[in-house]
Write a protein that binds this DNA or RNA. Structure first.
Length: 482
DNA sequence: TGGGGTTAT
DNA sequence: ATAACCC
């Protein structure tokens, strides 16, 4: 077989699916050369394929784990494997394994509906994200070993820019190996591969790397997932979802329009969310073709030039946004939702719980947050998703105590949070909250700046500002500014 | 609708 | 501080 490895066999794939999909698989070795195309002129290397400076086309992979939380739970407790499994947060089944999906359970389904559809459904609580978060970063780190440019999207998706890696592999390749070059996994739209087309070749090499990534994820972490390889993030993401679960697909440029036109509504385009979709609908735009052909001027007037130009490009499958390395997280937050919180004491208890978990996390990270934020959601029949927040700087003397074990850092921080709370909620009046969240952000690396160095005088907490009476006073007294 | 995240304004 | 987007 020319297809490379599909770890799916071990993960238990459906036979019927296999038969149907086998029709669309790559057979690059046979399908590769178009009869009339010119033969390579300079044997011994492939540099002839890449006219200098002309190669602006990228190779991007989107890696998408299969029902991630459920996979983590099945690794934690192997007895769950083979059973229909749902991961529950509050009264929602937020995700479930494929056994459960076959029996009609959907993502974000009400627990009651899910149990009704599938009485044998096993539920595990997934409100504590710790193990998911840890596994998520292991995946990102594994991908970073292939190429350092990895962008996270949520806990279970990553983009990797493979352009450089592909170039390196092509330089190693001898021209007599070219005719035997094969991709891995599916080719979208069962498109014909032209081995004389450098763009095709690069994407096929990208698909080989994607297969290696999925192999490594399975061998080292026990996780299965899908991958999509294409020339930009939008297309890579769209194509990764074509064959699921645990399979991969490469998109060749000639099939880009087929892919994006296959979307039945603009809302399915990543980058067009709920709000924008509603506004587009008001303009009579519902299909991708509608958006492609709509007057750019009118669209700019309705949505603003930035959104209008960006989403209209998206509708053509164009996306020049770079794969931005995520690096360590920009913020840590913990939240809890509930039916009702209507007293200050109640709120304080919940806030203390959230903060305690956060301090553990931030301690393990090593960096120090310089800003703290409190977020609430008020009960209301409409506008359920709207939240309010207040933030302030964390006083420097509290920041310094953050890593040190026995010092009580809880008390001053809870005091700050309760000030923020009372700034948002008039506690003398009745109130009804349905969510509390605490966020630590503005993370800075540990202060290694030494006296007399440039760093010392450029570090505000060490240099003159923090010794001035005025600044000191402001840090202590003003909790409402940042 | 959960419990997270990001960037732009 | 909010609003939009993503999972």
């Amino acid at each position: 077989e020319q297809l490379g490895v599909e770890p799916a066999e071990e993960a238990g794939r459906d036979e019927e699916e296999d038969a149907a999909q086998a029709m669309e698989r790559v057979e690059a070795g046979e399908a590769g050369c178009s009869p009339g195309a010119p033969a390579p002129e300079e044997p011994g290397g492939l540099t002839w394929l890449v006219p200098e400076g002309s190669s602006s086309s990228r190779v991007i992979v989107h890696v998408d784990l299969d029902c991630f939380y459920a996979q983590v739970e099945m690794i934690s407790n192997p007895e769950l494997k083979g059973k229909p499994l749902g991961v529950q947060q509050k009264y929602l089944v937020v995700t479930c394994n494929y056994e459960a999906r076959k029996l009609g359970v959907k993502k974000l389904m009400n627990v009651r509906d899910a149990k009704e559809k599938c009485p044998q459904l096993v539920l595990v609580n997934g409100e504590d994200l710790t193990r998911y978060r840890e596994m998520s970063y292991k995946v990102t780190e594994l991908l970073e070993e292939f190429s350092p440019v990895v962008e996270r999207l949520g806990f279970d998706e990553n983009f990797v820019d493979l352009t450089e890696m592909v170039e390196k592999r092509l330089q190693q390749l001898q021209s007599d190996e070219l005719s035997a070059l094969t991709g891995s996994g599916h080719v979208y739209n069962n498109q014909y591969i032209n081995l004389h087309d450098i763009v095709h070749i690069r994407l096929l090499v990208g698909s080989q790397i994607a297969a290696e990534m999925r192999e490594a994820m399975y061998n080292q972490l026990g996780l299965t997932g899908c991958a999509g390889v294409a020339s930009n993030k939008l297309l890579a993401k769209l194509v990764s979802g074509i064959f699921k679960p645990n399979q991969q697909t490469v998109l060749l440029p000639e099939s880009s329009q087929v892919l994006i036109q296959s979307l039945s509504h603009v809302k399915e385009m990543p980058g067009i969310g709920y709000k924008t979709a509603k506004r587009l609908e008001a303009l009579g735009i519902s299909s991708v073709l509608d958006l492609q052909t709509f007057s750019p001027k009118i669209l700019e007037k309705e949505l603003g030039i930035s959104v209008a130009q960006r989403i209209q490009k998206l509708s053509f499958g164009e996306d020049n946004s770079p794969v931005t390395p995520s690096g360590p997280p920009q913020s840590f937050s913990e939240e809890d939702s509930f039916k009702k919180c209507s007293s200050e004491v109640e709120a304080k208890n919940k806030i203390e719980e959230l903060l305690a978990s956060l301090l553990n996390r931030v301690c393990q990270d090593g960096r120090k947050p310089h800003t703290i934020r409190l977020i609430i959601r008020r009960y209301s029949s409409e506008n359920h998703c709207s939240r309010e927040s207040r933030q302030c700087p964390i006083p420097s003397h509290v920041i310094q105590k953050l890593g040190t074990g026995n010092c009580d850092v809880m008390t001053p921080m809870v005091d700050i949070l309760m000030k923020l709370f009372r700034n948002m909620v008039n506690v003398k009046m009745p109130f009804h909250l349905t969510l509390l969240s605490v966020c630590l952000c503005n993370l800075k690396a540990l202060n290694t700046a030494k006296k007399g160095t440039i760093d010392y005088y450029l570090t505000p907490s060490l240099s003159t500002t923090s010794r001035s009476g005025k600044r000191s006073f402001k840090m202590k007294d003003s909790h409402m500014e940042d």
